[in-house]
């Protein structure tokens, strides 16, 4: 046989399965991260909506005591001259609503960028996983035929 032929790399089925498992774990981690970022983004959007609503309507409101809204309290007025905004690392600043909205805008931008990056990486890993899975399936089919 001539040595000028194409070089072939032999990969064991065991190696492929290990690679597929590593990719599957990465997919799970990326999905979890994307969900967390999306949740944070929704919180930021809700905070901005709340500030905008309170600017126009700060009297006679209903306030939820719990996350699910099982109990609501009637609030006669919420003063909106200042709000406390989370700066990160456990620090908060008491500032005017417009300044708080600016901070929330920049946070929203960062989160959107993060979600895009994670989604892009996720697509790449999912494609790689699909390719490896296909190779594994073909190899297993051939092994069964050979038996």
């Amino acid at each position: 046989m001539s040595e000028t032929g194409e070089q072939r790399t032999v990969v064991t089925l065991e190696d492929l399965l290990a690679q597929a498992e590593a990719l599957r774990r990465e997919i799970e981690a990326l999905q979890k991260l994307r969900d967390e970022l999306t949740e944070s983004l929704n919180s930021v959007k809700n905070a901005k909506e709340a500030i905008n609503s309170l600017k126009t309507q700060s009297k006679d409101l209903m306030l939820s005591v719990d996350k699910r809204g099982f109990i609501l309290l009637r609030v006669t007025e919420i003063p909106i001259s200042k709000v406390l905004v989370n700066l990160g690392l456990g620090y908060y600043a008491e500032i005017e609503p417009d300044a708080a909205t600016k901070i929330l805008d920049s946070r929203e931008e960062q989160l959107n960028k993060g979600i895009q990056e994670v989604s892009s990486r996720l697509n790449t890993v999912v494609n790689a996983y699909a390719q490896i899975s296909e190779i594994i399936n073909r190899a297993q089919e051939q092994a069964q035929k050979g038996e």
């Binding site: 406390l84 700066l87 990160g88 690392l89 456990g90 620090y91 600043a93 300044a99």
Partner: peptide
């Protein structure tokens, strides 16, 4: 990155804005 972000936000805030830390 987070420390830089907080420092940036602090420098943009008005001097009289009270700062709190969650404990």
């Amino acid at each position: 990155r987070e420390v830089n972000e907080v420092l940036k936000e602090l420098s943009n805030l008005p001097q009289d804005s009270p700062i709190y830390k969650i404990v």
